[in-house]
Structures are given as structure tokens and as C-alpha cells.
Computed example of a mutant assay.
Amino acid sequence: MTPSLDSAALEAAVENVRAAGVPGLFAEIRADGEVWRGAAGTADTETGAPVTPDMRHRVGSVTKTFTAAAVLQQTEEGRIGLDDPVGRYLPELVPGERGEAVTVRMLLNHTSGFPEYLPYAFPSLATFPDVAGTRPESFDDERFTRHDPVELIGKGVAAPTDRAPGDTPGLYSNTNYLLLGELLARVTGTTAEECVTRNVIERAGLRDTELPSGPYIKGPHSKLYEAWFGMIDPPRDYSVYDMSWVIPGAGLISTVSDLNRFHGKLTAGEIVSESSLAEMRRTVPVVSQEGKLIDYGLGLHPREGSGEPDEHTFWGHGGTVWGGGTMSLTRADGARQMSVAVNLQRWNRLDSSGRPRPHPIDEALAALFRVAMDG
């Protein structure tokens, strides 16, 4: 049985996140036909303009689910084989024995062994994922840079790695999803952006979702405040940003309502077939960019609710960009959904060992997710 929506509890939980230190956040929760939308705080700390639930937002790695769905559609059409070697399609990007060893599935579930290219796109992040040695200067230097994905792929593929193709735990890496973008372009004869737009965004009937071609967010949106672990103080707005460095992996602009609509249709078998959805839910252990061990499927990862695991597993994705964060989850049976957006990132300062310190925002967000998922 799906718990009904408790508006008072949701309003209090959203307000607690704002009170813990997030300038603004907004959310949409759905349960068995009921819909709750709410927001708290400001979209602009200088003017005090409020956030609203219908605002567009950079949703970061939630994009990966859209890209993965587009790839699974091509497998249904027979243009891509999940267990085919990537070198069969992109021999110039993944040549030789490595191209024969790495499969499309390994790109989708981050077991290719390819490291993250992020430190090469943003030189002041050269020690990433060790954040203690990083500096945020590249965020400003690269704000309007138009990156070539092929060059970034080359840097990721050539970077040192301690993992062979197929090794688990895998290593979460945007290099995989840039390669999937090139794969979509190769097999469809168009761009990855056009493929995802036509076959996923439009098929789902999403009106406020796009893969942008420039640095601006169209329509009502919040500023996005990046703190980079206290190194940017006060946090700085990065809502205007050229996302060409990560479009197939984290470039999407959407709304919380559109994200729920998309995941609802995905769960209902209206974006990919039931068999493809089952493939997306086959997980392997993967080390996240935060160094945590997570279960990861093909552009989806699970999160458990409070009930029986089979009934109360939620599937979806989280995402971050410079200044913005999103979590979008839908229960396996489609009966309950949650999408939450915040306009602050990396609020945790580092301790003496370089690890993020606990912050009240962490627990406040976790409490909001519990109320949203479990009622």
C-alpha cells in the first residue's frame, strides 16, 4: 500500500532544508494520483526572489538515465548490442585490444575501467577525486569554453587506471557517457542531443526539458551557488555555464515535474521495453565520485524505501552541477515518485584529513527524502 501524501510533513521537511543552509529548494512528490509541489527559500540571494516549484534547473547526472534510455532504444532496433565491443563502433576512440574488451554495457554501468576526464577539463581540479588539493579557479576560467567531447574522451581513455574492463567494483566516470554520446551519433547519423531529444524527451512529452546548445537556462530558473567545500565563500552563482564538457552525462535542463513524468513513463514501459528496463535495473557495485560503494545499473541506481525491498525499491539518479543538485526517484511499481532540486552544492567544509565534514544540510535532506519516499 502506498502511503498518502502528508502535505504538512513535506512542507516542514522542505523548510528544514532551507533553515539548515540551502538558499532555495523545490520539489514534486507523487503518490497514487496525488501530487504535492512545494518550495522554500530564494532563487537569488541578492534580490530575495523566491524559488517556485516550476523552475527549470540543471539536473546534472540525472541526464545519464536519458542517455541510457536512448542507447537501449537503439539496442531494441538492432543497431547496438549491449555486449558488443565498443571498438566495433568507435575504433578511433577506443582502439586495439581495449576496444575489443570494453563493451557497451560496461560504459553504461561504469565498469569499463576508464577514469574521469574532469581533472583535464578543469586544470585546478588536477587532484580530483581527492578534493583537498583542488582549487575552484577553473570554474570561472572555463565558464564559456566550448569543449570538444572527442578531445575529452581521449584524455579519459589515456589516463592511468587500476581497473581492467569488466572489473568490479566499477569506477563512476563521465568518460563512459561521453563515449555513449558518440556511439549514439555514430549509429543514428545525428547528434546525441538530437537523438535524446527526439526519442526520449519528446516521446515522454516533456515540455520544459532540453539539452542546451549554449550557456544559458531558458525560462524561469534559480541562480546556482557553488561553495566547493568552503573554498568559494560566499558561494558564487554558476547558473550561466557552457555544459559542453559533459552534455550526454550531465547537461540536461529540466523541471521536477518533467523528471517525475519521465521516470513514470520509463517505469511503465513507455520509453523502453520491459526487457530493456530489466537490463537497466541489473546492478553491479560501483565506486561513486564521492568514494562510496553503490549499486549501479544501466543509467539507473536503486535506493531502498522502508518497506519490503521488492516492493519499496526506488530507481532513479542523483545529479550535481556547479551550484545545483537534483535527486529523482520512482518506486519500482511506479506508485510513488520524488524529485527534489537544490541551488547550493559542496556545502561541506573539509576536515584536517581532507574529508567533507558533516553538515546540518545532509541530515535535513535525508529527512526530506524519507518523508517523500515513505510518507
Results as ranks from 00 to 15, higher is better:
1 M>W: 09
1 M>D: 13
4 S>M: 08
7 S>I: 08
12 A>Q: 14
12 A>I: 03
13 A>P: 03
14 V>Y: 04
14 V>S: 09
20 A>I: 05
21 G>M: 08
22 V>H: 03
25 L>D: 05
29 I>Q: 03
30 R>C: 11
32 D>H: 11
34 E>R: 10
36 W>T: 05
40 A>P: 02
40 A>F: 00
41 G>N: 06
43 A>N: 09
46 E>Y: 06
46 E>S: 14
48 G>M: 08
49 A>W: 04
50 P>E: 11
52 T>R: 14
62 V>P: 02
63 T>F: 00
64 K>F: 02
65 T>H: 07
66 F>M: 05
70 A>Y: 03
72 L>H: 09
78 G>A: 10
79 R>L: 13
83 D>F: 04
86 V>K: 02
88 R>Q: 14
92 E>S: 12
92 E>Q: 12
96 G>D: 06
100 E>M: 08
102 V>W: 02
102 V>G: 05
103 T>A: 08
106 M>T: 07
109 N>H: 15
109 N>D: 15
113 G>P: 07
118 L>C: 03
120 Y>E: 12
126 A>Y: 13
128 F>Y: 15
139 F>A: 09
140 D>Y: 08
141 D>G: 02
145 T>D: 00
152 L>E: 01
154 G>N: 10
162 D>H: 06
167 D>Y: 06
171 L>Q: 11
171 L>K: 08
174 N>C: 04
180 L>G: 10
181 G>T: 07
182 E>G: 01
183 L>K: 02
185 A>D: 01
190 T>S: 13
190 T>E: 09
190 T>W: 00
191 T>C: 08
195 C>I: 00
197 T>C: 01
198 R>P: 00
199 N>A: 12
202 E>K: 13
203 R>I: 12
203 R>P: 10
206 L>E: 01
210 E>F: 06
211 L>C: 08
212 P>G: 12
213 S>V: 08
222 S>M: 09
223 K>Q: 15
230 G>N: 09
231 M>S: 15
234 P>Y: 10
235 P>T: 11
238 Y>K: 10
241 Y>R: 13
245 W>P: 00
249 G>I: 01
250 A>D: 05
252 L>M: 10
257 S>V: 04
267 T>W: 00
269 G>R: 04
270 E>T: 05
274 E>M: 11
279 E>A: 15
279 E>L: 14
280 M>S: 10
282 R>Q: 12
282 R>T: 13
283 T>G: 05
287 V>T: 15
291 G>Q: 11
292 K>I: 10
295 D>E: 14
300 L>D: 04
302 P>I: 07
305 G>W: 00
306 S>P: 00
308 E>Y: 01
309 P>C: 05
309 P>M: 06
312 H>M: 07
315 W>M: 04
316 G>K: 05
318 G>H: 02
319 G>D: 03
326 T>K: 06
333 D>P: 06
334 G>R: 04
349 R>N: 12
350 L>W: 06
357 R>T: 13
361 I>L: 09
364 A>S: 13
371 V>L: 03
372 A>K: 02
372 A>T: 02
375 G>V: 03
